[in-house]
Write a protein that binds this DNA or RNA. Structure first.
Lengths: 340, 340
DNA sequence: GACTGGCACTCACTAGTTGGGAGTGCCAGT
DNA sequence: ACTGGCACTCCCAACTAGTGAGTGCCAGTC
């Protein structure tokens, strides 16, 4: 059964009121606050239908209605326009990010900014290397049997790692290894490097074979495994704001989930280009986060996506506002990355 | 007035019971559980004295007694022996830390380990550079006017930073700069380097003066400013364990304080060599942490202290256990650093 | 003088009761 | 199709004992 115009309007009003007041909303209050031009009785009929369709529910008989996860979903998809940011917010974003000195700092500032603007928990994935390309490799001899491998990516991110070589290696040999590696890998996207690393080992002169083999292991680790690993988090204190009504009483599972980087990466790392993804309550695969909603988006220079960011909060959150904020911040950070 | 032997015994019993049960403890239960060889009435008299002296208090008239911050303090200072760890705990520490691949990993594992063993919030400061010494400097040319400076410290920590040079610089000049810097700084403790960096600029050949000046700024930043910056955190979910009785209801201020790195550094960074510091409730300078206690200690290779670590939890925590755990972990990590 | 048993008292906590009110569902009327 | 009216439900807050753990004090004992 299709919901007519007014029923949708009623649903929107319920969501908005409930988000604002955190209290079940009844038919009378609804008519008063939003100027629906009908009587409470009519609204009640509409509500009955909305309830039957699963968009709202009553916490107890004869209490007001509360949106269900499906209700929020419909609201987000059909009933809300993304709120444009205020001038003040735009300026806050700029001012907050403008002084960043390096990549770490950008991420750090971004995550705090998001937490502050949305008053939710904010998560930012460090720019992933996998979709970026290699700018330079450096091998630094620490001792005759030890090298430090440093990789610099286009995004400005630097990764380093120590390697123990199988035997003493001369300075000239290190130079040659460096040359070979750079020749083969510079400019390539990280996702494409594994076969190239393999080729490096196979094509190496016999004398360079052992050290190159040792290096290849570490290169692969650096290039692939660690490439999407890091996550920055801020605003956990915001979880403790809404009394304890949100999250049905216990913050524990939420806090636990937030400490699992793997989980966060799953939530915020899997983003399609220029899409804002909203996961509401039950839609969440992670059991512990069934009482929470997530707004996530990708970011990166231009149209490229090098990482995800977003916020997490109670299902009863200001979706339009948060979506707008997350998008705006992501875009701004993308521009910042493009410049450097 | 001096407290006699038995009164102290009573205080100890109160603290232990209260920590275990989280409930005010009365005279009768006390006599039953600990075999004090006196009657409840006698204990009551002792309690009255302890209360007068400010070591315990009654939440309400005619409820049991609860230790005050001062009571915990006395308990920690005089009445408790550090609990030796169980064999299982020792093995857990080893197993947990043994697979660590690099410094970041060590810190990361350590903090999770601490959180798990103590069931509190754990904090570990990354090994500070300031008391460690320089192992090697590397300059990596990115372009003719851009260098990457990489510093490797004795602790294994690596810092890198980009520098824009005032003008094009030849490869030979870079080599010379690298030689000069290493010659002057390798082996020195980071705290001692600033004057040496100054000297480097002054003693440089005229042609190397401009790039060396640019470098010196970045060197100082790397060596000094960023040297104590980072902190790892785990176990915040443990805050939400004790119902909401701990922290008098609101986690908010605690979570907020935990997000301020500056605060954490103050708490866990200011550690004297081989001392375990315990801050109980009110003793805390930070307003928001007046309902919490902190157990912190320094760690480092041998007798050197390169950073702090510890745990934070409700004043009603298992001090002897936590102190033992924090010490053991700190010691183990210290050994690990000494080996590398 | 130190300890004990006894006793009256306090007061948080629990369970049961009650009234009020917000909100609903339904129905007859426009 | 919408509305006003009305009976009904049931959460919530306030009140009322009743209970019991715990105390302070005191007189008595070793």
């Amino acid at each position: 059964m299709a919901l007519d115009e007014r029923k949708l309007e009623v649903l929107r009003a319920i969501v908005e009121d409930y988000v604002a007041t955190q209290e079940p909303v009844g038919s009378k209050a609804l008519v008063e606050r939003h100027n629906l031009r009908v009587s409470p009785a009519t609204v009640r009929n509409d509500m009955a239908v909305l309830e039957e369709e699963g968009y709202i529910r009553q916490p107890h008989t004869s209490a007001g209605r509360v949106p269900t996860d499906a209700g929020y979903r419909l609201f987000v998809d059909k009933l809300s326009r993304v709120k444009p940011l205020t001038q003040a917010e735009r300026r806050a974003i700029e001012r907050f990010l403008i002084g960043a000195v390096d990549l770490d700092d950008v991420v750090h500032r971004t995550v705090r900014l998001l937490a502050q603007l949305t008053r939710q928990v904010a998560v930012v994935q460090y720019p992933s290397l996998s979709r970026a390309s290699v700018r330079h490799f450096e091998l630094v001899p620490i001792s005759t049997t030890r090298l430090m491998v440093v990789m610099i990516a286009e995004t400005g991110r630097v990764e380093q790692r120590l390697v123990d070589l199988p035997g003493p290696t001369l300075a000239d040999e290190v130079t040659e290894l460096r040359r070979l590696i750079n020749e083969k890998l510079v400019g390539k996207r990280l996702v494409d490097t594994p076969p190239l690393v393999q080729a490096l080992v196979e094509e190496a002169a016999p004398s360079l074979r052992p050290p190159m083999t040792a290096l290849s292991t570490v290169l692969l680790e650096t290039l692939v495994e660690r490439s999407e690993e890091r996550i920055a988090l801020a605003g956990t204190a915001n979880l403790a704001r809404g009394g304890l009504l949100d999250f049905q009483g216990s913050l524990r599972p939420i806090l636990e989930a937030l400490e699992e980087e793997v989980i966060l990466l799953k939530l915020f790392g899997e983003v399609e280009p220029s899409m804002t993804r909203v996961r509401i309550g039950d839609e969440n695969e992670i059991e512990d986060l069934r009482t929470a909603s997530i707004v996530a988006t990708g970011y990166g220079p231009g149209t490229m996506v090098v990482g995800g960011m977003g916020v997490l909060g109670p299902t009863r959150m200001d979706y339009p506002g948060n979506i707008a904020t997350v998008r705006a911040v992501a875009r701004y950070v993308g521009d910042l990355l493009a410049q450097s």
